[in-house]
Design a binder for these strands. Structure first.
Lengths: 226, 226
DNA sequence: CCATTTGTTCACATTGAGTTAATCAAAGCT
DNA sequence: AGCTTTGATTAACTCAATGTGAACAAATGG
């Protein structure tokens, strides 16, 4: 797993330091914030796949943030894990009610936390939510299960091949896919020389979604802008 | 948990704030309006499953709105709960006469309100009400319990399979259902190659409902337009 | 038992997704 | 610069997927 963004909202402490190190060592790109209030903006801008929310003894604020995340089409598929000091069953129920994906009670065991995160990540491989180059305000949500793509909350109609191609590129945004790779995975055949099939499909995607989502890496292939 | 839309018509206050939070924490998507006059449009556009009407000391206006909601085929299955300051038995009777589903007297106890709402919701889980692509003004109401479908307030007669198919598609509007998925859920059997059964049923639905409700995703399946 | 409704199959028509081809534009290279 | 390679773009073609009307079969209801 390469460098997924992870947001950890908590206050610095020896325990949190250790957790942060463990996560970094596992390849996560960890951002630590110490307030709920700043978090939503970060979440919308950076699209972390995983969000760890320490309740910070402010359950209501914490759960409200969680609920906001889960209320938005573009963030609801991020995995939210709540960290709590509190063993009270009611708190846990409230957390799940607010839409949390997991609830972890202190003391933290970093490796166990990592394990839970990995489980969460795998359970949710089919939805991609992207806000490209911070310049633009457009956003894309690609949902493999329901075969739907939303551009700024509006449903975009894509054909099967268009969808498969977009999903492939979006599944590792930033990565450059070679033509061979794309042919193999979407068309399940070898590229023949002078075959413009991919170009045409990229063109159609660009026409439907806008020009800035897919960029060309001349001589190599295409990438989805993260 | 449900993420159902809920409309609360009242005036901002500490009490209403607390209620709103509690509802949000329960997973409701709460919209707060402070006038009856704006509400009907919201109700028609957003199809909230639950409507909380504070009388705002204007019983007549409040009950009239309630009556309008209950007079319309597309909104009558929304659950209307009246919030009142007034302990007068007559007021309560008037509320129920106007079609209210529940009557709650202040002071509000948020958890108790939530409990009443959940009870109401469960009693009425199988109605789908849809207003497709803002272009058109046609509306569909699919009522699982009574196996009836209304198109623009007119009863449409559907056979069992037609109804089941429509209900399946409508239950996740926007999602593309594959042919396999449809066969499995509606016909409870595997699709055999070159089986046109689904096509024919889709065709009959389109003939009865109009062309714009169900769209084809070539190579994949069908979707209900949200 | 017949009449009617509902579900499925068949045969042919139509559509549109996917591909190919042809031409133009841009980037790389010597 | 001039030549070569690669990608963009548009139009046209092809064929599998779907639409469609009618016939047939099965279930339902008096």
């Amino acid at each position: 797993m390469t460098g997924s963004n992870l947001l950890l909202v908590s206050e610095p402490s020896a325990e949190i330091n250790l957790l942060t190190h463990t996560l970094s060592a596992k390849g996560f790109n960890v951002k630590l914030l110490n307030q709920f209030s700043d978090s939503l903006k970060f979440i919308e801008d950076q699209n972390p796949g995983i969000i760890l929310l320490d309740t910070l003894n402010k359950n209501v604020a914490c759960f409200e943030l969680c609920f906001l995340i889960k209320s938005n089409n573009f963030t609801r598929n991020m995995q939210v894990l709540i960290l709590s000091d509190d063993q009270d069953e009611k708190t846990e129920i409230d957390a799940f009610t607010a839409g949390a994906d997991d609830f972890i009670i202190r003391p933290l065991r970093p490796k166990a936390v990592v394990q839970r995160i990995l489980t969460r990540l795998n359970s949710n491989s089919q939805v991609i939510s992207i806000k490209p180059n911070n310049k633009t305000n457009t956003r894309l949500r690609i949902d493999k299960e329901s075969y739907t793509v939303y551009l700024n909350n509006e449903l975009v109609h894509l054909s099967k091949k268009e969808f498969d191609l977009l999903h492939l590129l979006g599944s590792s945004s930033g990565k450059v896919f070679t033509r061979d790779e794309i042919f193999e995975k979407v068309w399940k055949r070898k590229a023949s020389l002078n075959d413009r099939t991919i170009d045409v499909h990229v063109r159609r995607l660009r026409k439907k979604l806008g020009e800035h989502f897919i960029s060309t890496q001349k001589g190599i292939g295409y990438r989805f802008n993260s």
